[in-house]
């Protein structure tokens, strides 16, 4: 049963990935470039620029009409010999840092960049605190040992030991 489930899941995942790859390929298949450098520049940019309409997709993955227009803009600029920086400047000056999947490091983005580290530190502090508490508890002298209970039925014990083997 479980195996069957895993297999189905794997199949579904593969189909999903293939579909994604196919649609991504369809979005750029017909473009022509002067040289391979231009093409890789374009391919890099449309993956790195974010679609502002559908916020969790890049320009390449999105089929929104704005993303299509922006892909065209990137394409035209690249064909006209624009550098990576020029295209990124163009987008940022119109849509803001939001279009970048790799935001620049500045005062407003500090939390974005170092937030994860902050969380890690918080987690580490909590972990250290908990561990220390446990250690202290372990070192605490155990209250007077309880007197061994008068020999009660020893059978269950023996049984356990046997099962252990």
């Amino acid at each position: 049963m479980r195996r069957h489930f895993t297999r189905t899941l794997r199949g579904a995942l593969a189909a999903l990935l293939l579909a994604g790859a196919a649609s991504a390929a369809a979005n750029t298949a017909l473009l022509e470039f002067d040289n391979p450098e231009q093409e890789s520049l374009y391919q890099g940019l449309v993956r790195e620029l974010r679609c502002t309409v559908c916020q969790n997709q890049n320009l390449l993955d999105s089929n929104s009409s704005l993303a299509q227009d922006l892909r065209e803009k990137v394409y035209d600029q690249v064909r006209n010999g624009a550098t990576r920086e020029a295209v990124i400047d163009f987008m940022v000056s119109r849509y803001g840092d939001f279009v970048l999947y790799r935001p620049p490091l500045k005062a407003e983005t500090m939390l974005l960049w170092f937030g994860p580290l902050l969380f890690l530190l918080c987690g580490g502090a909590v972990l250290a605190y908990v561990l220390r508490q446990q250690k202290n508890r372990a070192l605490e002298p155990i209250a007077a040992p309880e007197p061994p209970a008068a020999q009660t039925d020893p059978k269950p014990n023996r049984k356990k030991r046997r099962r252990g083997k």
């Binding site: 502002t52 309409v53 704005l66 227009d69 922006l70 803009k73 119109r94 849509y95």
Partner: peptide, 13 residues
């Protein structure tokens, strides 16, 4: 019509 002016204005919706 082309949406180019919209791009200049950073229109996304």
């Amino acid at each position: 019509q082309s949406g180019n002016a919209g791009i200049e204005w950073g229109v996304y919706g």
